[in-house]
């Protein structure tokens, strides 16, 4: 250090040059330049592809909305007749234990009349979070459909929650009572059959639905007391 400060005093130009070369910013000029270049490249990729990716996500949700409200056969029938369902996206804010929870809800209308609701919700599964769409009738009395948007459950076991065979048992379940997952054959109206070897995944899905239903029931239908 002493040597270096002395060289500066006598303005020894080769010494100065050495010092500049040892400066970490100068040493890293390539890294800085590349970071700048790659950064702008990534920004332009994001600018050009970002809207398309958002569209993919939205399209997946919107394409599922009709069958979640009407059921698959009725939805195909309407599509064949070129009848289109009005889908109105909205954000519902729910206050729960002083915490604000936001729900993306789609109100579907046909010829000006409400014929159902689709709510997007998510929660913890067995492995990672499960994101799903939940269809409800206009009065929120019955579940009209369920679709799993995103899940990371065990392949071969828990990921069977995406199969139609398992999901269809939720259709026409009343929302009055909480859904309960049972292992030995569902009897009561609010009972759901667990997937063999994946009880936790099955319970996660029905709990996510229970929470969303109790959160939204009072919010969407004004004047009706909520049972949360």
């Amino acid at each position: 250090m002493m040597m270096e400060s002395r060289t500066r005093e006598i303005k020894d130009s080769p010494g100065m040059w050495e010092r500049i070369k040892k400066n970490s910013l100068v040493q890293g000029w390539l890294v800085l330049l590349l970071a700048l270049f790659f950064g702008s490249a990534l920004a332009s990729v994001q600018l050009s592809l970002g809207p398309k990716i958002e569209m993919n996500k939205l399209n997946e949700t919107l394409s599922k909305v009709p069958e979640l409200v009407l059921g698959a056969s009725r939805a195909h029938e309407m599509e064949a007749k070129n009848q289109e369902l009005g889908i109105e996206p909205m954000t519902i804010e729910v206050n729960k234990n002083n915490k604000r929870v936001l729900y993306n809800v789609y109100k579907t209308t046909y010829n000006g009349e409400i014929n159902g609701w689709v709510a997007k919700t998510s929660g913890q599964g067995y492995a990672g979070s499960i994101e799903l769409l939940l269809g409800l009738d206009p009065g929120m009395e019955l579940i009209t459909g369920l679709f799993i948007l995103d899940q990371k459950e065990t392949p071969g076991l828990g990921n069977k929650i995406v199969t139609e065979q398992w999901r269809k048992q939720f259709i026409n379940k009343p929302t009055k009572n909480r859904l309960i997952v049972v292992k030995d054959g569902a009897d009561a109206v609010n009972e759901i059959d667990a997937i063999t070897g994946a009880t936790i995944s099955s319970k996660s899905v029905s709990n996510i639905m229970n929470t969303a239903i109790s959160d939204l029931k009072g919010q969407l239908i004004s004047g009706q007391s909520s049972n949360r």
Binding site: G28, L42, L49, I53
Partner: peptide, 27 residues
């Protein structure tokens, strides 16, 4: 002494591009 940083920077950039392309075209 800076080569690994440069490699990682380069690789990360192209991986991010690949990830975005997949999300856009093979959702």
């Amino acid at each position: 002494h800076l080569r690994i940083v440069v490699f990682t920077l380069t690789i990360a950039t192209f991986v991010t591009i690949a990830d975005r392309i997949l999300a856009a075209y093979l959702y």
